[in-house]
């Protein structure tokens, strides 16, 4: 059951809706409220008053039948999803690796057997591993390394290729150089691109490594297998079995710690907390087990953790306390 039934529909809410200020939750609540005939008549009058202004545009929905015809046509061309096991994978996705390509890269085939282990040098050290670090590599490729993660680069970085070794999570914006492939090594998995940006994170909990591609293409490869992942898709590497699996979607929250852009779609509170913990240096504890039943939809862009927690608290009707980067959430849970 969704939580939007707690949203009160009054003149302020309806005006918000007409003014294009309603959140998805609020719009759903308004639409539910409109199912009642009296309400929908009241709404029609308000909508007309709203649209009365000279030069103002009037809402007119096209016929659903006509649109359905168009839509059916578009669906016929649509291919089946790459893989259906997405529930488990989705759960692990935000926590593991993600990759974005900003420019479409070509990739060259590299024989794994001929690769020698490079000499690694530490990059982006600030003496601690507690903060998110940003910096550039020798070729001006930009990197962002998350907390508790480290990045090393090969001593011969930029000579024949550009190899980096990642532990944890990192985001890369790679300068294009066709002759010198950029290769991220994360455990046994390697990800190769020629000019692109992407984010990598290993998750020891789920033993998975996930590469998410927003535009362009990357190639994932191990000693035995390889997988090309295209725009809008996700590649999953199972660290235990060594298998590579493609799925046809990506999770935008993979990049949240870099972009501070969160998309929560009817997302359970524990999952929301994991995304926030990953992006901010906080630990979130649900004081009441019932709270894990709560879920909500929201979009946050460039907000600090306090703002986000305030919204969550208001939406779910819970309270929270924050002390020394530990957040406790209190409340009666949702049903």
């Amino acid at each position: 059951m969704s939580i939007h039934q707690n949203i009160e529909i009054d003149i302020t809410m309806l005006t918000r809706y007409l003014a294009g200020e309603a959140t998805p939750e609020e719009a759903m609540a308004v639409d539910d409220w409109l199912a009642d005939d009296t309400n929908s008549k009241e709404f029609a009058r308000l909508q007309q008053a709203w649209q009365l202004l000279p030069g103002n545009r009037v809402h007119h929905a096209p016929s659903p039948d006509v649109v359905w015809k168009d839509l059916s046509g578009a669906l016929e061309e649509d291919s089946k999803p790459v893989n259906g096991r997405s529930l488990l994978i989705r759960y692990a996705m935000a926590a593991v690796i993600s990759g974005v390509l900003l420019t479409a890269g070509l990739f060259a085939y590299v024989h794994i057997t001929t690769e020698k282990d490079p000499v690694w040098q530490q990059a982006l050290t600030d003496g601690t591993s507690s903060g998110v670090r940003k910096g550039q590599l020798a070729d001006s490729s930009a990197v962002v390394i998350n907390r508790n993660s480290s990045l090393q680069y090969a001593a011969d970085y930029g000579q024949h290729d550009r190899k980096v070794l990642l532990q944890g999570e990192g985001y890369f914006d790679v300068i294009a150089d066709k002759g010198k492939p950029f290769i991220v090594q994360a455990g046994m998995l390697k990800i190769m691109v020629l000019g692109t940006s992407f984010n990598v994170k290993e998750d020891s909990l789920s033993n998975r490594t996930i590469v998410t591609v927003a535009t362009g293409k990357v190639k994932l490869y191990t000693a035995e297998r390889e997988l090309v992942v295209s725009a809008g898709q996700t590649g999953v590497y199972d660290q235990v079995t060594g298998t590579l699996t493609g799925i046809s979607t990506l999770d935008q929250n993979s990049f949240s710690y870099v972009t501070r852009d969160f998309f929560f779609q009817d997302m359970p509170l524990p999952e929301i907390c994991r995304h926030l913990e990953n992006a901010f240096a906080v630990k979130i504890i649900l004081d009441n087990a019932q709270l894990s039943q709560c879920s909500m939809s929201a979009h946050f862009k460039d907000r600090d953790v306090t703002y986000i927690m305030d919204i969550i608290a208001a939406t779910l009707d819970v309270t929270y306390t924050m002390q020394d980067n530990t957040i406790h959430i209190n409340g009666n849970g949702c049903n």
């Binding site: 809706y17 007409l18 294009g20 545009r57 809402h59 096209p62």
Partner: peptide, 16 residues
């Protein structure tokens, strides 16, 4: 959902 979503989208875009 189509018509409701269209109305919602219209409030945001002011363009049918």
């Amino acid at each position: 959902n189509f018509e409701r979503l269209h109305r919602y989208a219209f409030t945001l875009l002011q363009d049918n």
